[in-house]
């Protein structure tokens, strides 16, 4: 939800992006109006509009005059590509930093990654130790 760390309009834009990335908002589907966002998140309507307009400027959403706001075709793959760029900085770097602090070697870290991969590969019903 909304926190105090950054401008709210950025957070609103990101919440909508999350919904697009995980498929909750499909491409070409209609998104709620800025006033609905404002009421739902209990934020200033002008702030909600700024967040939505940012996504319109980025080509993630587009406006149909008199109808509302829709998710653009190709929006999801573009967002996923952007997020892959962020992934290294936001997840990999902090992880390796913490690993170094704890004396975990790169080899050990790699081994752990393989291990999580095999755990997540396990299908339901398989026995985990």
């Amino acid at each position: 939800m909304i926190d105090d760390s950054r401008p709210i309009f950025l957070q609103i834009a990101e919440l909508i992006e999350n919904d697009i990335v995980d498929g909750a908002l499909a491409e070409e589907s209609q998104v709620p109006s800025t006033n609905e966002f404002a009421a739902f998140y209990r934020i200033n309507p002008a702030t909600a509009a700024k967040g939505v307009n940012r996504l319109v400027d980025d080509g993630i959403l587009y406006k149909k005059r008199g109808i509302g706001m829709f998710v653009a075709a190709g929006a999801r793959s573009r967002l996923v590509a952007q997020r892959r760029d962020d992934f290294f900085r936001e997840y990999v770097q902090p992880m390796t930093r913490e690993a170094r602090k704890l004396g975990i070697s790169t080899a050990q870290l790699t081994e752990m990654l393989h291990r999580t991969e095999s755990t997540s590969d396990m299908t339901e019903g398989s026995v985990s130790r």
Partner: peptide, 29 residues
Amino acid sequence: DRLVEDFAAHPRTIILSSHLIDEVANLLE
């Protein structure tokens, strides 16, 4: 809640003086 909804439907100038800043912070422009 009614303030946000009604302001969205009927924009106007609202001056809100409050000590409960955490409660109103997200409503303010």
